[in-house]
Design a protein around this nucleic acid. Structure first.
Length: 772
RNA sequence: GGGCGCUUAGCUCAGUUGGCUAGAGCGACUGGUUUACACCCAGUAGGUCACAGGUUCGAGUCCUGUAGCGCCCACCA
């Protein structure tokens, strides 16, 4: 047996990890035949476009704790790792790489660009996987998946076709959020809103056949070139008589009707609104209800089209806006201009303006999918930790819109649809179609677009498990826990629930554990631009993985954001060292396994064993309830303030008495080994290192059994030991030295056996206690 | 406009279904080189649990309202 070093060497962590990985214990097969059931977690696929951050560290820590605990319980435990191509996100990252070389993505052919991003992604993947290893992730790397794996794409295609055939997916020319800078459409979720001051222009439209006008207010005067109606609220008394009248659209001189629609707010502006179905989401809806034509006056580069008239064609919207206002003013049609603050739609990544415009895209009808997804949570088939996230989930699901799943980018899963000249759309889940089934023409062009990344990640739970026939799918679906951060609750979790139920007729997971965001010490979000990002690998290098993991978990209630504080890490590094030193003490003083005899337990033995039983119960209960922060706290308290401070201290006295030496050694080793098992999910490295260093068994700690109830408590003995602790503390605070003696009154020793007076003197580090 | 949180010791936060004198870590202060550990040991101080009502034998915990802070969603053109 090699002697433990003075300090736990962080470099050992890597070796321990290699041993584990080589052993195959990360695989569910480790517990095959134990008949304790299954436990599974699919790891949220990591974006393969950068390095691991502290959020990943938190995710891995929580999941790894659950996995290691369940593995020790004896369940067949699957933790499936994966990476995500992260379509648009990765493209944005990669565009920055290109920018440094003075290029843009439009400088490359589709296939070349795809290959370049592929290579970029591959190198990131291997980095990030090594970072997960450094964090101690005991996931089954042989089952790793990538969202662009062949089998995943096949699943995505199969599902797309099924949804198309069943009418849940349709292609439509609808208003979408277009990003002229990135040249792609977005779903509602990728649009951010920025408060901004802007002019609200009041424009007069002449009513046909009269000299009177109706005034509308708009922040986007240039879109008036595409107006096809004026709308007022049907309840609005001011405009009752005008409904059905025709107005002359200035500049263009188009005749458009005044219509009534309930969506119009009477309080805003003049209560009359210009309707531009092609360039405003609300107007689009009004247009649909009233069968209004949609005239596209803005193109995908945010420039005016020919429809806007030759005076405006080619002008950028901002220039066109100024020109329209100028022209209207010269015609005397601008009533007034007010400055207002409103929320402008911008790209969530770069903050540039979003242009709502008409575009052919693929949409998912979400209404029915949402209904079932809501019910599953209402019925408790899926539970959220913490429960408050259910409210957010419901709030969003009840207001869902159809989901635009097509993106005009190269990096992603290409949509398997072909268009024929005859107008037919062919969706194929497999090979490229040879000819149009309708007109038999062989001239088919494939859709250029790719899927929204979330369309594939929404399918992750069943796709990664090889739905529908895979062995893992049959055994582990639905998974037990989906663990992720709250900021992708609706992007991802909600959509997985919808897709999972639709495809498998079963929920994709039973519990959703939501963790918080990690902020800097001042509570600010970490971001590259602020320069306050902390790299978990630096923390690991400085303090060790165990200290980092423990710090991320202790005192952090599920779902709450966490302010990262290096002092906390330091404190928990000290805790790791504490455990290490307990082990060193035991190695020196109880080097061999010893049988214990229960009949001759000392009060200290009784006390620590009783406390240990309590700890086992407490920790098990907390972990089962996903209260990892409380489990960690109980562990910390036991190891430091009970085991180290009192039991190890009193063992110094008992080890010197040959009558109690053997039992004390046995109990020291026993309590240590049980403590290591209980600590292992939280601090896997140091515990395994001690376990093997002290040769506590011939198995690795990672596959030891989670501690079960073992000792019956002797309450009287434990109580007595606690009274002694109080007494000792009091005496120690008197500032006596080892040569002093101290006199105490007999009545203070009421519940203490006289045989323990020497123990008290010993713990108090004084020579002798006299009684008076 | 709708929704969700937060407000507990100087700082960062716990506090499970309402139940003993409200806890931890860090910091501060007092004392201690004790044969595992100064990345240590024994202690001390510090809180009208944001505020105001209510329910209850009992409220940090449940209800109502107020204030401050934060976040999410949303079609004020």
């Amino acid at each position: 047996m090699a002697e433990l070093e003075k300090r736990f060497d962080r470099a050992e962590e890597q070796k321990i990890y290699e041993k584990w990985e080589k052993s195959g214990y990360f695989k569910p097969e480790t517990n095959k035949g134990k008949d304790k059931g299954e436990f599974s977690i699919i790891m949220p696929p990591l974006n393969a476009n950068g390095n691991a951050h502290l959020g990943h560290a938190l995710m891995v820590t929580i999941e790894d704790i659950l996995i290691r605990y369940n593995r020790m319980i004896g369940k067949e435990t699957l933790w499936l790792p994966g990476t995500d191509h992260a379509g648009f996100e990765t493209q944005v990252v990669y565009e920055k790489v290109l920018e440094k070389e003075g290029k843009t993505r439009f400088d490359y052919e589709r296939d070349t660009l795809y290959q370049m991003i592929w290579d970029f992604t591959e190198s990131n993947k291997s980095n990030i996987k090594n970072q997960l290893r450094a964090l101690g992730s005991s996931c089954d790397w042989d089952r790793e998946k990538f969202t662009l794996d062949k089998d995943i794409i096949e699943t995505v295609y199969k599902v797309f076709k099924k949804m198309y055939d069943e009418g849940l997916i349709y292609r439509g020319n609808r208003i979408i959020n277009w990003d002229p800078y990135h040249q792609t459409g977005f779903s509602e979720l990728e649009v951010a809103h920025k408060e901004r001051k802007t002019n609200l222009t009041y424009i007069k439209y002449q009513i046909k056949g009269s000299n009177s006008y109706i005034t509308v207010a708009t922040t986007r005067p240039e879109t008036m070139l595409g107006d096809t109606a004026i709308a007022v609220n049907p309840e609005d008394k001011r405009y009752q008589s005008l409904i059905g009248e025709i107005v002359i659209l200035p500049i263009i001189n188009r005749e458009i009707p005044i219509i009534a629609d309930g969506a119009v707010e009477m309080e805003f502006g003049t209560g009359a609104v210009k309707v531009t179905p092609a360039h405003d989401p609300l107007d689009f809806e009004i247009g649909e209800r009233h069968n209004l034509p949609a005239i596209q006056v803005i193109d995908k580069n945010a420039k005016m089209t020919a429809e806007a008239g030759k005076d405006y064609e080619g002008l950028h919207v901002k220039k066109a806006r100024a020109k329209v206002v100028e022209t209207l003013e010269s015609l005397g049609l601008v009533e007034k201009v007010e400055e207002i603050t409103h929320n402008a739609a911008v790209c969530y990544k770069c903050g540039r303006d979003i242009e709502p415009l008409l575009s052919e895209q693929w949409f998912i009808k979400t209404k029915d999918l949402a209904k079932r997804a809501i019910k599953a949570v209402e019925d408790g088939e899926i539970k959220f930790v913490s429960k408050r996230f259910e409210k957010i989930y419901f709030n969003w699901m009840e207001n869902l819109k159809d989901w635009n799943i097509s993106r005009q980018i190269v990096w992603g899963i290409r949509i398997p649809a072909w268009f024929c000249e005859c107008g037919e759309i062919i969706v194929s889940e497999g090979d490229e179609p040879k000819e149009c089934p309708k007109c038999k023409s062989p001239k088919l062009t494939r859709d250029q677009d790719t899927f929204d990344t979330w369309f594939s990640s929404a399918q992750w739970p069943y796709a990664a498990l090889d739905w529908p026939n895979g062995k893992d799918y049959k055994k582990f679906y639905p998974t037990d826990v989906m663990e992720t951060a709250w900021d992708i609750l609706i992007f991802w979790v909600a959509r997985m629930i919808m897709m999972g139920i639709y495809i498998t007729d079963n929920v994709p997971f039973k519990t959703v554990y939501i963790h918080g965001l990690i902020r800097d010490s001042k509570g600010q979000k970490m971001s590259k631009s602020k320069g306050n990002v902390i790299n978990p690998m630096d923390i690991i290098a400085g303090y060790g993985t165990d200290a980092l993991r423990f710090s991320l978990v202790i005192g952090n209630a599920p779902g709450n954001d966490l302010n990262f504080d290096e002092n906390k890490i330091k404190g928990n590094r000290n805790f790791v060292t504490k455990l290490w030193n307990i082990a060193r003490f035991i190695q020196m003083n109880a080097p061999q396994a010893k049988e214990v005899s229960r009949e001759t337990f000392t009060i200290a033995d009784q006390w620590i064993l009783s406390e240990l039983e309590t700890l086992k119960e407490t920790m098990t209960k907390h972990i089962e309830k996903y209260e990892l922060h409380l489990a960690a706290e109980a562990l910390y308290d036991f190891v430091w303030y009970k085991f180290a401070d009192w039991y190890v201290e009193s063992s110094k006295y008992y080890l010197n008495d040959h009558q109690t030496t053997g039992n004390t050694q046995g109990v020291l080793r026993y309590v240590l080994s049980e403590t290591l098992k209980l600590s292992h999910p939280f601090m896997p490295f140091v515990t395994e290192a001690i376990w093997q260093g002290l040769e506590l068994s011939d198995k690795m700690l990672i596959i030891e059994e989670w501690p079960q109830k073992e000792y019956k408590r002797d309450k009287a003995a434990s109580d007595e030991f606690e009274i002694i602790q109080g007494l000792v503390a009091k005496i120690r605070n008197l500032g006596l030295t080892k040569d002093d003696s101290h006199t105490i009154q007999k009545k203070e020793l009421e519940n203490i056996s006289p045989s323990h007076i020497e123990l008290i003197a010993n713990l108090a580090r004084i020579k002798k206690i006299n009684l008076s």
